[in-house]
Amino acid sequence: MKKIKYLLSAIPAALFATSAQADISVSGSANAAYTDAGGNASATYGGGVSFSMSTTTDAGVTITGSSAISNDSDSVGSSSGATGITALTFGFSGGSITIGGDVGTPDGVGKVGELVGYADDNQVAKTPVVGLTEDEGDGISLSTSIGDMSLTAVYVYDGLGGGNVDGAANTAGGASLSMAIGAGTLTLATADEDVSGTNNTEFGASYVMDAGGGTLSLGFTGTDGDTAAKEGEAVSAAYSTTLGGATVAIGYTGHDANNKTANQTDVTFSSPLGGGASIFAEYTNVSGDIAASTSTKDSTVIALGTSVSF
């Protein structure tokens, strides 16, 4: 009997021990767009391929790293590059921890109406721009949930990507929280930055809900700190819906900072073509306190393009 008991105690370890499993996934996209800013036409194109390598330890922790071959696809200048694995993500049953580069603070949560990704390339700048600038760099990000609430906390210890943990000139941090309230999802976020001794703090809130067959998003952003042009509020709204398979969205964001105001209106359209391809069109206009138009930049910009997902 003793022997049987001993054997039974040895069996579970033998049965449930698992070996590491490695996985490689490959994805990518390519884009080409025509941009017109007050008669100045430009072409942008680019894309890249990403390799994501992951493994699962015996304890069930998933470790993921990714690298890429890329070409910047949203600016006129071509910026090709290949990156090694710059960050590792440790996935647990209750959340994940990311350590490395390209870790971003949860800023911009309230600017739900800023929709375009290509048309703003040759757009004149707004004078008041509420929000932070030091939002990405080397850092650590933790994501988890409490009940139905999702939480993310981020600390960027080196905004210049130099890996300096305790003495970098640029640092940032923040946290965001999302939860279901009523018919929609409320997200609250705060982020602060220290750019060579210049400190600013942003608070953002958004509420996203289904409305009229589409999705209505409302947002608010408030910035407080050392930079007068950023200190103020921005209100934002967007509505997106589908029309015969195509997605149409319209967004508005009003910035009010340092006694100056600027408004941005965006309209986007995209339609899938099948096989991973799609076409898109973007329109954006800024008004109010903005920079003067130049031979290459204008307050109104349109972009037409196509993208392919691999």
């Binding site: 899938p272 991973g276 391809a277 993208s307 392919v308 997902s309």
Partner: peptide, 8 residues
């Protein structure tokens, strides 16, 4: 934009 599809 492609509706979740991929070319390859």
């Amino acid at each position: 934009r492609a509706g979740g599809e991929s070319l390859f």
